[in-house]
């Protein structure tokens, strides 16, 4: 299973960034073969608008199964849902911790966004 985390670093011990659209980067963890891949999101970090949508598009292209992040806005959520990517909201400090919570079944797939739209 390929899981994407919003990350401020490129290892499993990196902090889980609570923001989705404006996270500095994404860490993709494939727990079947233990590989890690880091994806830069700086372009969207500085976007005037539509950061969530573009970030969602970026991770869709990576062919992931689910996203673990702090907060996800309505347009990003809509885009991720359309791409069949499950969203898990998580308050963990680090990616390791978030993954442990996910594996222990402590996280449930979100049915709605948990952040307000920034544009309107």
């Amino acid at each position: 299973m390929k899981i994407v985390f919003t990350a401020t670093g490129d290892s499993l011990s990196a902090p889980l960034d609570p923001r989705f659209g404006r996270a500095p980067g994404f860490l993709i963890y494939d727990d079947e073969n233990g590989t890690l891949k880091s994806v830069n999101n700086e372009q969207n970090l500085n976007a005037a608008q539509g950061a969530g949508i573009q970030a969602a598009l970026l991770i869709c292209k990576q062919g992931v199964d689910c996203l673990i992040t702090g907060h996800c806005g309505p347009k990003a959520f809509q885009t991720l849902t359309a791409a069949n990517i499950k969203v898990y909201h998580c308050k963990a400090e680090t990616i390791e911790e978030a993954y442990a919570q996910f594996k222990a079944g402590e996280l449930t797939a979100a049915e709605t966004a948990n952040a307000e739209a920034h544009w309107m």
Binding site: Q49, G50, I53, L57, C60, T79, A83
Partner: peptide, 8 residues
């Protein structure tokens, strides 16, 4: 330019 339309 505004992410108002996207294709998945």
């Amino acid at each position: 330019q505004f992410s108002a339309i996207i294709s998945l």
